[in-house]
Amino acid sequence: MLSIKNLQAEIEGKQILNGINLEVKAGEIHAIMGPNGSGKSTLSAIIAGRQEYQVTAGSITFNGKNILEMSPEARACEGVFLAFQYPIEIPGVSSINFLRTAINERRKYNGLEPIEATDFLKTMREKMELIKMDKSLTSRSLNEGFSGGEKKRNEIFQMAMLEPTLAILDETDSGLDIDALRLVSEGVNKLRNKDNAFVVITHYQRLLDYIIPDFVHVLYKGRIVKSGDKSLALELEEKGYDWIKNEVEQVNN
């Protein structure tokens, strides 16, 4: 589904990614871990199409299409979803209005008519139920005055509504208390199926107790330096990132 080959990227002349290789297949959950500044958020931003990063080498194909050539909205319509680390506030725009616009733009992209109001509301009720989302949030201005936990849950709710084939969760667990973490994780687990895939970016093993990854990758200095199954996350938790750093330094020496 997602194939990243030798991806190198920089921002304002500063090299951030130094050759990332990653293959994600339908039905899989990949966790990407790594210390601060290792390039985790950069990777997710580049997949989603943020333009301040310059891709200097490598490729990203999504379902066989070269998405580096596509606008961010086209990538979204192709089925790429990014749950933001810091969801953005849009004053005066209700969550409902925002989502309906997003769904209809996606339908337009796929040559479909706008969604019927009744169908939309019905889907919304179902998905709110699914991820135990408070009804009042959807009529409030998008993310405005939401608590950190509410914002993250709203991201998962949007994901549920938009039904992406690839969802990237950028540190969705940061700033969540245990209860919120569980709710968000349950949401992801319910949305998981054999046709979609998740890339979960996190600092901590904690989230992976709830969302069980098929693969764990450790990103360090813009490179995936170690890959394994979920036991790698536990090992990291135990030994800390210094373990990886030392290992990498040794290889380099």
């Binding site: 989603a48 979803f81 725009v93 997003a102 992209y109 949007q158």
Partner: peptide, 18 residues
């Protein structure tokens, strides 16, 4: 907005109307 599939022109309309 773009990341949710909303093109920039539509996004501006949305934000301004809000």
């Amino acid at each position: 907005c773009n990341q949710r599939g909303i093109p920039t022109d539509v996004a501006i309309g949305l934000i301004v109307n809000g």
